[in-house]
Design a protein around this nucleic acid. Structure first.
Lengths: 241, 241
DNA sequence: CGGATTGTTGAGTGGGTTCAATTAAAGTGG
DNA sequence: CCACTTTAATTGAACCCACTCAACAATCCG
């Protein structure tokens, strides 16, 4: 049986011993099915569990006063959230699934035990936390500074690279979990404009989104166009595609 | 003698024993003067020191291909950076001073020793890391979703609240460390537009920036206008102003 | 006092928006 | 398995926030 997405991801952050892998695999052994659009944690709550995305996609988000939604992070298979959030007292945002997913829940005590048990696991968790922060910084650049015909392919390149890192991307493309409306909520642009830019990108042969699948006719050209430099994902120099 | 900004800040994150306070004060006892515009850490580097801002202001930033600068975080007195960055291998951004400042440097070894010595300090450092991430998320909302006449007062409210938390704001205002061009680099708008919006905000009696000082004629009204909710700073419900 | 940085204002342009309507695709129940 | 409903994708027209370019005033600082 092949390794879980969680272990594949964390291997990029630390040298895991086989006993560490065992411990981590045990965490994702029992995942619950969760429908699309379900909140795992809502704002103001004080969660006592760590969540791990086993399959599907979740996101961090905030509701805006005008009723719209701002997506602040994507949680792909192998990603976890809420490490040590109990320190903050309350959540300043919500976490919910974007598509039908499978989610593992780990209690605070069990997490504590895990972190105390192994140096590599502790290191891997710090690594994941620091990478999350790095992604947030890059999103700040993407959302605040780039024109939309770069924002969208940049997002696609990031998802592609992250999915590659856990072995979920094939053949110069990947199964796209997001609708155009979700892309809009993520980039802070209108869904109508997402559509227009997608057509433009398709016409230029940079990237295609059709039937829930993203395809790069020429990935390197697209990455260059989007100013995508995977360094901020800190996956090492292992070529993942 | 009054407490350092560092200790004042970290008290919001953990119950520090007097021995913890002693240890932290020792870190900021010897700070170096650093000129405005000096890089503390540049992209691609692998830093081996923790930096603590004792006075002045520094920032995280990235250079954009078009030559402009994107400011990704403000480091105010009491803030530190690069906790555990050695785990990531290389920096994905730079850190530099925005004004003349005083900066303490702490070696990796000494930091390690400090973290191992005390549970409250370990907890306070996690708290600071998580708050940094929460600020980044709120900036993503501010930059991506709010119109500029809310972005600017939101930024001012945040700086005001953070300065209050370390005892550096007085009389419904604070000494503004940033120029209009820096505000522009931070919010991703043009410096010209910053000026226009500032005049508008002044005319409406919401907030005034004059002679390097920000004044709130009516803070509550400004906070409401900017949709500023200090919850994401996780400073507790202690009223700081 | 003179040079440089910072702040201020006007005029014209453009990327992205909203509103609205239509087509395509994906579920759902009989 | 097909009619029906719902959701997602697509395209057009008019508008506006913020941008660039350009000039000038004020402030800072040696």
């Amino acid at each position: 049986m092949s390794e879980s997405h969680l272990v594949r991801k964390l291997r990029h952050g630390a040298q895991l011993a086989s006993r560490d892998v065992e411990r981590l695999e045990a965490l994702v052994r029992s995942a619950n099915s969760v429908e699309a659009g379900t909140d795992l944690i809502v704002e103001e709550a004080s969660p006592r569990h760590l969540h791990i995305v086993t399959s599907g996609v979740a996101c961090r988000y905030k509701h805006l006063p005008d009723g719209r939604r701002a997506i602040l992070a994507l949680l792909l298979p192998g990603d976890f959230c809420d490490l040590h959030v109990s320190i903050l007292g309350h959540m300043d945002h919500s976490i919910g699934t974007l598509v039908d997913s499978r989610i593992s829940r780990v209690s605070e005590d069990r997490l504590e035990e895990l972190l105390n048990a192994s140096v590599p696991i502790r290191r891997a968790c710090w690594w994941a936390t620091l990478v999350d922060e790095a992604i947030l910084r890059e999103w700040l650049v993407n959302v605040g500074r780039r024109p939309s015909n770069q924002q969208i392919p940049h997002l696609f390149c990031e998802i592609y690279t992250r999915l590659c890192a856990v072995g979920m991307a094939r053949d110069h493309g990947f199964d796209m979990p997001l609708t155009q409306a979700m892309i809009a909520d993520l980039l802070g642009i209108s869904a109508v404009h997402v559509q227009r830019v997608l057509r433009e990108l398709r016409d230029e042969g940079l990237v295609t989104l059709q039937g829930r699948r993203v395809t790069f006719p020429n990935y390197d050209r697209t990455a260059a166009h989007a100013q995508f430099d995977p360094g901020y994902l800190h996956l090492g120099n292992a070529r993942t595609h």
